[in-house]
Computed example of a mutant assay.
Amino acid sequence: MAGRTHLQHALPCTFGYKCAVYLSGVLRHLEQIKEIKKRCLLVQFGGAAGTIASLGVDDTGLRVREQLAVELGLQNPDITWHVARDNVAEIINFLALVGGTLGKIALDLMIMSSNEFDEVSEPFVPHRGASSTMPQKRNPISSEVILAASKMLRSSASLGLDVMITDFERASGPWHLEWVAVPDAFVAVVGALHQTNFALGGLVVKVDSMERNLRSTKGLIVGEAVMMALAPHIGRQKAHDEVHGDCKSAIEQNRSLLQVLEESPVLTGVFNKEQLTSLCDPSQYMGRAS
């Protein structure tokens, strides 16, 4: 299929490669969860100003906090953290990162499911995504919900960071924002994950459309392949300028890149017809995507 940059054809890739890029982000998040539990899920026990003064000057207060952590299944902090809210902010921002990964997937699915692309579609459910007046519609409902959730999560992450700016040993109010940010973030990320499971679990992948779109620019998508093959013979910059001119001609004349290359003295002086045909075949310029 066509790999795209700036919404335009860039280089050929595979749909599997695209999915693997998505998966790499998800796997990173999964690896982070254990570390976040160790680093952020801390027992909170420190008294009014965090000194545990009510339990005396010996280590009684520290031992009580340690035992309380054991009973609650939380980590025992090195020191009272009432006004050091970075652990809570980290949790919310982690959820926002998950939402960002899912949001990127959702945005790609939404664009790829447009009629002009027609490369994927969400699982078909009767009347889901339909319009009250346009029966032909199959709107990408799950992707829209995921994208909205990712934006909500970024908003919650911002609130979490705001809470970190607190006053003295017991904040006068900013931490109340967590009462909204934390539950909203968990609800939003669970909803986004649920919708992603649904959308990807039955995703319709339209390989014929991917092939059609790949060929739609008549070989221009492998302009880099031609340039890189020509570079050892005439130099990289000269090769770039030559192929750039050939691509320009192909666009203006509405011809295939191969047709233009076959009339180029520079290209035909280096490559025969079979070699030029191979260079203009997107399947021959996949890198490691396959």
Rank of each mutant, 00 (worst) to 15 (best):
V21T: 14
E211I: 04
G219P: 05
A149P: 01
P183L: 06
D241Q: 11
L68H: 03
A48P: 03
Y22H: 14
V21K: 12
D184K: 01
P123N: 13
L30F: 08
C280M: 02
G47I: 07
V145R: 12
D86E: 15
D241A: 09
V204C: 14
L42I: 05
P123Q: 12
I36W: 03
T60I: 11
I52P: 04
K104Y: 08
E66C: 12
L147F: 09
V226N: 06
T196W: 01
D58T: 14
V70I: 00
D184Y: 01
T196C: 12
K273D: 08
V190Y: 10
K206R: 14
A157F: 00
H194Y: 15
S290G: 10
C13K: 07
K34H: 13
N139L: 07
F198I: 10
F271Y: 02
R128D: 06
Q237A: 01
H9M: 04
V207A: 08
P123W: 13
G219Y: 09
I33H: 04
V222M: 11
S131K: 02
L220P: 05
A171L: 00
N139H: 04
N254E: 06
R212V: 04
N213R: 15
F124Y: 15
E178T: 00
T14Y: 06
K218M: 09
R39L: 03
S264N: 14
A199S: 10
A84V: 11
M227G: 03
L74R: 00
V270E: 04
L42C: 05
N197P: 04
L97Y: 02
E169R: 14
V205E: 11
T196A: 12
H194K: 15
T196Y: 03
V189T: 07
A10G: 00
V120H: 08
I251P: 09
F15L: 02
D86T: 04
W175G: 00
V64Q: 08
V189Y: 01
L161T: 14
E71N: 11
L30E: 14
V70G: 05
R215N: 15
M164R: 10
L62H: 06
Q284P: 00
T133K: 06
G100N: 10
A53G: 13
L200F: 07
D59N: 15
S143P: 00
L7H: 08
Q8C: 10
N272M: 03
D246F: 07
G25D: 13
L258H: 03
A225V: 03
E71W: 09
T14W: 07
R154I: 01
A225W: 02
S158W: 01
S143F: 05
L95Q: 03
C19I: 13
V98I: 13
H176N: 06
P265Q: 07
S216Q: 12
I165C: 11
V226E: 00
G129K: 04
K18H: 12
M112Q: 05
G99Q: 07
D118C: 15
F198P: 09
E169Q: 15
A106I: 02
V207T: 11
A188R: 01
P282D: 04
G46Y: 07
V226H: 01
Q195D: 12
L27I: 14
R215L: 15
A84M: 13
F94Q: 12
D281Y: 01
I234K: 07
A289C: 14
S249A: 11
L72S: 03
G191K: 00
K137G: 02
Q8M: 06
L107W: 02
A96T: 07
W179F: 15
